[in-house]
């Protein structure tokens, strides 16, 4: 298991990075202050807390995934620490997998802390733990599988700044891609339709993981939907990681 030490080192590097704590601080600040914001409303106070809280967690979660995901791979290349690692008996794909695993671990822990912050804030408000929120967080974590995979994918071949822009773009596109289906209906030309159709199924569909809405209004969510979304998240990220491996395998370090 050569992936393990790399994952561990990645994790260690990430949690010793100050930027992570800065983001965490702002996320928690936003969650806690949502309590104050909820005082301004009439009626459903905990809805506001949940709304702001879930949004803060997803926003900062994505930000963390992108910033840390990109810096941790690019930095190895830029600072040439990767020379040392790759000259050891380790395959390049093992290196990428280790990075990916380490990043996911870091992000999982950060998400956990933020979710805990939200649950506690709600607990002080209503006196009970709103555990159904965990489902939304779980699916959001699946979304981060894909975002992180993209962060790694892009940083195997471009600069950190471009990688972060691309990954952010993927995040935005992933949440809007269902519009392509609507567009397909309105475009008359066959090729236009075909293009929309292809793009729709090629691009990640991050709306699959978005059940914030159902969670806030306590609607029932089918287990089938959840399992399918998880399956989608895992298989799609495998695709991206494999693509990254293909590119990384041929990359010249000079």
């Amino acid at each position: 298991m050569k992936v393990y030490p790399i994952a561990l080192n990645t994790f260690r590097e990430a949690i010793r990075d100050r930027i992570l704590y800065l983001l965490l601080f702002f996320a928690l600040l936003m969650i806690f202050t949502s309590r104050i914001a909820s005082l301004l409303t009439v009626g459903e106070e905990s809805k506001i807390i949940i709304d702001v809280g879930l949004s803060a967690i997803s926003f900062f979660g994505v930000l963390m995934a992108i910033l840390i995901g990109i810096t941790l791979v690019s930095r190895e290349i830029e600072k040439r620490t990767i020379y040392n690692i790759l000259s050891k008996p380790i395959r390049r794909y093992q290196f990428l997998l280790g990075k990916y695993a380490g990043l996911l671990l870091t992000i999982l822990i950060m998400d956990f802390i933020m979710t805990l912050g939200l649950l506690l804030t709600l607990y002080f408000k209503s006196g009970r733990f709103e555990l159904h929120l965990l489902l939304a967080m779980g699916l959001f974590f699946c979304e981060l599988f894909i975002i992180t995979a993209f962060a790694i994918f892009f940083s195997t071949f471009t600069t950190p700044i471009l990688s972060s822009i691309f990954t952010l773009a993927i995040y935005a596109v992933g949440h809007l891609s269902w519009n392509l289906l609507a567009l397909k209906e309105r475009i008359a030309s066959f090729w236009g339709k075909a293009l929309c159709f292809m793009l729709y199924y090629l691009l990640p569909n991050l709306e699959n993981f978005n059940i914030k809405n159902e969670v806030v209004h306590q609607l029932t969510i089918g287990w089938k939907t959840v399992l399918l979304a998880i399956g989608y998240g895992i298989s799609y990220s495998v695709v991206i990681i494999l693509l990254a491996t293909l590119i990384f395998q041929r990359r010249d370090f000079v």
Binding site: W178, L181, A182, Y201, N205, E207, N208, G222, K224, T225, L228, A229, G231, Y232, S235, Y236, V238, V239, L242, L243, T245, L246
Partner: peptide
Amino acid sequence: LILLILALFFCLSLFFQLTLERARGEAL
């Protein structure tokens, strides 16, 4: 080999996506 696995997982993700769409009803 990697390309093959890649294609396989892509099909898998497509399958999940399509089933999800059916499960959730019309996406729109």
